[in-house]
Nucleic acid binder design. Structure first.
Lengths: 345, 345
DNA sequence: TTGTACGCGTTATCAG
DNA sequence: CTGATAACGCGTACAA
């Protein structure tokens, strides 16, 4: 090896054995100093740690993973990162797992159940120790896969009585029912809804059903006025157009997300409609910007932070105890602001 | 072992050797079938893959990582996941690396340079093969660390002539200059700015400097009217208050993010001020909701998607070639909408 | 083109 | 409480 090579070669990472040698103990003891410090003599342990710090030693993650069978990775599958509600959830989830020494790998499925399966497989193949799926698990391939899984899995967002996958979330049916009770209480008789696609999406299905059930039970109009759209500004604009065109007598518009509420309110006002005097508009999620528009948006507050935090919590518990994660129900809150009011007489 | 235990025990994961045995080849050949398929006889290869599929074999990631020294992980450090602009960027970054078989681990620093260092260390210790840092690398510990790093690192968002870390991003100074030219061209004479904290944040520093330079060079008012605030609705509201209180004669407000623009516009209108007649307000980023509020927001479009995609691209190249990633400059676009106009005479 | 043999860095087991 | 030793599952010289 020439001098130049020596200069260029970055010194190899120190390993367990190097620390052991310098600290005059066996490799096993160094390992124990890291993994079960309590059973190592304090003086010895301190010496080891000091040497480790000197050498700049950190345990090799791959070797550790191979030997212990623990990858230190948890997987999350989320429909998209583009909705702030999911971002918030993941943030708190990840924070909790980070404290526990795990890396969180987030994969997005694009609202596609088939892709959810693919991503889950990817994660499991790479040794993920736990799995969080946002939304009910409906894919026909994913269900048997999760069933046979040796690692804990939890679904979040919806609270579902799924015997297969414990969930941490809220009751979407109840949430929308609450909104409907409020609007019906205001005296509205003709409703419409902007919803996301119910295909393979339990949240949307529950909300649509709750909407229709509420109307049916009171004999009100609007069970057929359900506009299925993606969650984008363009799509919401299109939905608003169609609403005004087909059912101009609607007095209460129930949106399944704040983007749609926001967009349609802006559009209605541009067309000279008054909100809430001419039409009430309600959202879902309670995004930050609900208080920015005039009128401020009445909406359902979704416990995003708690969902992430609690999912992490029960997965961590399951990881420790080896038992099945325990489902946990959270609640939504109806936030009444200015975008809803009694209909004109 | 009792029968019950047998029933409970999930069968162990098949390994390379199992596939080899069933396919009547050596382990080495199975390994080659996966890693260098070209040098394996096609018939043999097909037989191996078939057996592998039958057995449900997938290579063990940990063993692979240990043996090859490649973790299959890339790390990203981002100030926060809560700004949609970062979320979008990461999305495209991650997508590209996902295609290449990597897992992306995203850690957030909370705009704290010290924490950026900690997170980087975490990632490197766990074997990340490449690093993306959002924002300039300024931490005094992080710089030497990156210098000594054996893996490629790129900073993104700002385009910086940093000899240490190649960057993929745009020129923040130029972007704000462009906005200033436009507003000055409209005839404005008294300006104010809402900015984020410049501490350890090159983006904010560049924008503030560009703002002040523009005013100074034309002898206009407002170099001292810089309100430093966090990027939240509350903080922006507070800034708006202070602006009206201290400098009510301001005719053009330059915001360093769309949230602040959005918030202040809403607030101004609530107070009876007309936008843009009484005061022009400009944003930064071009978030989706810029077109939702009335008036629609004039802003600078940031190439979020391209930043993510291109960062991934050059890191992947560097991973292949072993060479240093090549910096790449992207551009912003001034989007003129309705929230800006000439000042009243 | 394929097989043999070894070691990557760690942790678990067992003995002392 | 500590040490010796044997894996964990795979990739890669080297030989055939």
């Amino acid at each position: 090896m020439s001098p130049a090579d020596i200069a260029l070669a970055s010194k190899p990472r120190p390993k367990l054995a190097d620390v052991a040698a310098r600290a005059k103990v066996s490799a096993a003891t160094v390992s124990r100093a890291y993994n079960t410090p309590d059973i190592v003599n304090e003086k010895v342990r301190n010496r080891i740690m000091q040497v480790a710090a000197q050498l700049g030693y950190t345990p090799d993650a791959a070797a550790r993973a191979l030997r212990s069978g623990k990858s230190g990775i948890v997987g999350v599958i989320v429909p998209t990162l583009d909705h702030s509600i999911f971002a918030r959830m993941i943030n708190s989830f990840q924070e909790r797992f980070s404290e526990a020494g795990f890396f969180t790998v987030v994969l997005s499925s694009g609202f596609d159940n088939r892709s959810t399966f693919d991503k889950a497989k990817l994660l499991v193949d790479r040794g993920a120790q736990a799995l969080l799926v946002v939304g009910g698990v409906e894919d026909v391939q994913l269900r048997p896969m999760i069933k046979s899984l040796a690692i804990p899995a939890v679904s979040t967002y919806s609270y579902l009585e799924d015997p297969l996958v414990p969930s941490v979330g809220f009751d979407n049916y109840q949430a929308t029912s609450r909104m409907m009770d409020y609007l019906i209480g205001l005296g509205h008789k003709r409703f419409a809804m902007i919803a996301g696609s119910p295909d393979g999406n339990d949240r949307q299905r529950s909300r649509i059903t709750a909407y229709q059930d509420a109307l049916r039970s009171k004999g009100l109009i609007g069970t057929d006025r359900v506009l299925i759209r993606q969650v984008t500004i363009e799509a919401a604009q299109d939905a608003g157009q169609e609403l005004l065109h087909r059912w101009p007598d609607t007095t209460a518009l129930v949106c399944n997300n704040d983007i749609s509420a926001f967009t349609t309110i802006a559009m209605f006002r541009r067309k000279g409609l008054r909100v809430p005097e001419d039409i009430s508009v309600a959202g879902f999620d309670d995004a930050e910007y609900c208080t920015l528009i005039d009128p401020q948006i009445t909406t359902l507050r979704v416990p995003a932070l708690d969902m992430g935090r609690h999912s992490a919590e029960i997965l961590l518990e399951a990881l420790k105890s080896g038992e099945r994660p325990r489902p946990f129900q959270l609640d939504t809150e109806l936030i009444v602001r200015a975008s809803t009011a009694p209909p004109k007489a």
